[in-house]
Simulated assay, not measured.
Amino acid sequence: MTQTPLPERLPRVAVVTGGSGGIGAAVSRRLARDGMTVVVAYAGRPDRAEQVVADIVAAGGQATAEQADVADEGEVAALFDRVEQAHGGVDVVVHTAGIMLLAPLAELDLADFDRMHRTNVRGTVVVDQQAVRRLRPGGALVNFSTSVTSLALPTYGAYVATKGAVDALTMVLARELRGRDVTVNAVAPGPTATPLFLDGKDQETIDRLAAAPPLERLGQPDDIAETVAFLAGPGRWVNGQVLLVNGGVAR
Rank of each mutant, 00 (worst) to 15 (best):
V39W: 03
T17W: 14
G200R: 07
A65Q: 13
A14Y: 10
A54I: 11
L231Q: 03
A232H: 06
G89P: 10
T4C: 00
D72V: 01
A188V: 01
G24K: 01
V182H: 11
F230K: 02
R178Y: 12
V92H: 13
L218C: 02
R118I: 11
E75K: 10
R118V: 09
V57T: 11
A225Q: 10
P137D: 00
V27T: 04
G88H: 08
D222S: 13
Y42I: 03
V148A: 15
D181T: 01
D222V: 09
A140Y: 10
V13A: 04
A54T: 09
A58K: 15
G44T: 03
L244Q: 08
R48M: 12
E8T: 02
A77P: 07
T64L: 13
L218K: 04
E176H: 09
P195I: 00
T183D: 13
A250N: 12
A168E: 14
T146Y: 03
R33V: 04
G60H: 00
L102E: 09
A211I: 02
H95E: 02
A250D: 06
L244A: 12
A63R: 05
G61R: 05
A168Q: 15
G200C: 13
V228H: 03
D167R: 02
I224P: 11
D199M: 12
R134S: 02
D222I: 05
A54W: 14
M1Y: 06
V125S: 12
E176T: 01
A49T: 04
Q85Y: 05
V92I: 13
R236I: 03
L198E: 08
L243D: 02
D47L: 04
V184T: 00
Q3S: 13
V121P: 14
L173M: 14
G219K: 05
M1P: 15
L231A: 11
P7H: 00
H87M: 09
G164F: 05
G98C: 07
F113R: 03
I23W: 05
A152T: 04
R217V: 09
A161H: 11
P221N: 09
P154S: 00
D91G: 03
A210S: 15
Q130L: 02
A43R: 15
Q220H: 11
K163P: 15
T192R: 06
Q3C: 07
D223N: 04
A168W: 13
E226F: 10
V40W: 10
I224V: 13
D69E: 14
E8R: 11
R217I: 08
L102V: 05
R178Q: 12
Q220V: 01
V148C: 12
G138H: 12
A250S: 14
I224N: 02
E204G: 05
R122V: 01
A168S: 15
A71S: 15
V94I: 01
